[in-house]
């Protein structure tokens, strides 16, 4: 047992997003949609109904011209590591969303989900979206669906999985290669796509990893850290106003 109340393996996957490098190009968000078969509709401008696992927020410093500045903040699921439970796993009545103690990844099992949306209410990061409609792709776009991720059905909640299917594939390969499971590394789609190399991903417990190093940077902060949800996604910025906004509501 670790000091935060759940069993601890040697692996805790986490992410560090450098907002000084991020250019808001949205490649991460698009790559995520393609990788995870995220459905889309003709009008996606109602953001309360739009499904986006990697949402890119627009933040500004509230100043007047010419001191006004804005920034982007890509927001995947934080995969919260709070004691005993993440906010979403705590409220799920059917164990559809659970944290994998061996990796720290908070998963969501669609066939178990009954669509009560408690988790959406509980999540302080708005990282979860609900399927209000049957997913439908215009003919012939179904041909570009990835067999690695199932499509979701109407009436369930979905969210970022840290591309855990890529972890499974990496583990299968590691098993065949005779490697240690705890040494498996993999790259989620958003990290792979980022053209300015703003996102680092890896094992937070491995002190030699890039992500662990960045998490300790003096530029690092986490969103709503006052809630003690212990997000495993870290942000880096040299701008104090972004640090301050991180503890305001999104």
């Amino acid at each position: 047992m670790s000091d935060n109340g759940h069993t601890q393996s040697g692996v805790l996957y986490g992410m560090a997003i450098d907002l000084d490098k991020c250019t808001g190009c949205m490649a991460c968000s698009v790559a995520c949609q393609a990788e995870n078969n995220i459905s889309f509709r003709p009008d996606e401008s109602n953001k309360l109904r739009s499904i986006t696992w990697m949402e890119v927020y627009y933040l500004d410093n509230g100043a007047e011209h010419p001191d006004y500045r804005f920034s982007y903040l890509p927001r995947p699921c934080m995969h919260c590591n709070a004691p005993h439970h993440s906010p979403c796993t705590f409220v799920c009545p059917v164990n559809a969303t659970v944290r994998d103690e061996a990796t720290g990844i908070v998963g969501h099992i669609y066939p178990r989900c009954i669509g009560c949306r408690y988790c959406m209410v509980a999540c302080p990061y708005h990282a979860r979206d609900f399927n209000w409609w049957d997913p439908a792709w215009p003919e012939p776009m179904e041909q570009m669906l990835s067999p690695k991720v199932s499509t979701r059905m109407r009436g369930v909640v979905e969210k970022c999985s840290f591309c855990s299917h890529r972890l499974n594939a990496a583990r299968s390969k590691a098993y065949l290669d005779g490697l240690e499971m705890s040494e498996v590394t993999y790259t989620p789609a958003c990290v792979e796509a980022c053209p300015s190399q703003a996102i680092a991903f890896g094992n937070l417990l491995d002190e030699h990893s890039e992500v662990a190093r960045l998490a300790k940077s003096e530029r690092a902060f986490r969103l709503l850290s006052k809630l003690n949800t212990e997000p495993k996604v870290y942000y880096l910025s040299r701008h104090p106003w972004l640090h301050n906004l991180a503890n305001a509501s999104l």
Partner: peptide
């Protein structure tokens, strides 16, 4: 619940080697 989550019109991606 199972039936409602397995609508026949929910697309199933073609499986195979990538």
């Amino acid at each position: 619940a199972i039936w409602s989550q397995n609508w026949s019109w929910r697309p199933s991606p073609e499986r195979g080697l990538v």
